[in-house]
Structure formats: C-alpha cells, structure tokens
Amino acid sequence: MSIGIATFSAPPAPVLGRIPGNKAIWVGIYCELTEFALMFLVYFLARAHHPEAFRDGPQQLSTVAGVTNTVIMLTSSYFVARGVMAMRRNARGTCLKWLTAALFTGIGYPLVKFFEVQWNVAHGLSGNGEVFQMAYYYLTFNHLVHVCWGLLGLLWVMARTWMGAYDATDHDGLEAFACYWHATDLIWLMIFPLFYVLP
C-alpha cells in the first residue's frame, strides 16, 4: 500500500482500470464533490478573512454530536462495504442483513442532527449571520441533504436485493450506491475536523 501503513493492506482490485458501480453514479459523485469543493472554498476564504470567528467557533459546537455523527457515517459505510462483499460471494441474505444494519445506523445521522440543532439553538447558535455559524449551517445542512438522499438510495438497493435483482456477477447498482455512500462519508470526514476539531 503506497501510503505506507504497515498495519493493514489495501484490498486487491478485481479488475484494473474498472469503473466501480457505473458511469452514471460517478457523474453524480463528481457533481457532489464539485458542489462541496465550492463550499469548502467559501469556508477557507471566510476563515482567512475572519480567523478569530473560526478559532472560537468550534468551542460553540457540540463535539459529542460531531463525533457521534462521524462514528455513524463510518459504521454505516462499513456495513454497506460488508454488504457488497457478501454479494460478491452470492450471499444475498447476508448482504441484506448488512444493508439493514447500515440503514438503521444511517438513520441515526439525521436524528443526531435534529438533537444537535435543538442544542445549538438552546446555546444561541441560531445562524443569525455570524460567519462561522453561517458556514457551519450551510455546509452541514447540505451534507444532511446528501445523507437523506443516500438513505433513500439504500432503501432502494435493499428492495432490489430482497427481490433478487443482484447476484455475484451482476450487482452494479448495489456497488454504485455503495460508491455514493462512501463518497458522502468522505465529505463528512473533511467537514468534521473543520468545524468540530480545529481549535
């Protein structure tokens, strides 16, 4: 593994140069990455213009909520990856169990977000025009929308798996959803430190 981690190795690629899932999902993922890249650009410019607001900002947020949602995203992503691996063995029932676990874990994300917003408002973070709060609400609410779309997609691939639409040799749709879910996870891993971790 080129990153130099001795503890574990990258999984071997089934076919070199392949497009995981399908082309359409990668058009969608490129759009998602571009959308968030523009929002991250706004974040960095706002941080350059208002360093004090961004230095003090993370202390106003609930670190517990940020960590909990990161654990939820990572765990749900892991369950989806296990589901894809099960489908590659043609273990459809096992795949459905992993996807069900991913759904119930993933539903925790909007729930935690709901309680986090309640907590924010109670602590005076109502998005009233302060630059850090605006950047925080803008980026995290957009991400929440993407998570909700992902949960709907997860329901769809669960239904397709249940109906027997996928097998070990043909499960591009399942893999396409997995790519979207992991990309949404990746974006959260960029958002989390910018708002909750950086002192």
Partner: peptide, 24 residues
C-alpha cells in the same frame, strides 16, 4: 489535523471505495 484528514480520506478511498484498481 490536516494530516489526519488526509489519512482518513485515503483509508476510505482505498478500503471502502476500493479505488486502488479503479480507472485512473
């Protein structure tokens, strides 16, 4: 923190997205 962001991103890309053998 930036190094941790890059490392976590790379782990997700290699192990969850499995892009090691994907189209360049």
């Amino acid at each position: 923190v930036a190094a941790m962001m890059a490392f976590k991103g790379r782990v997700v890309i290699d192990h969850f997205l499995e892009l090691g053998g994907a189209h360049p």
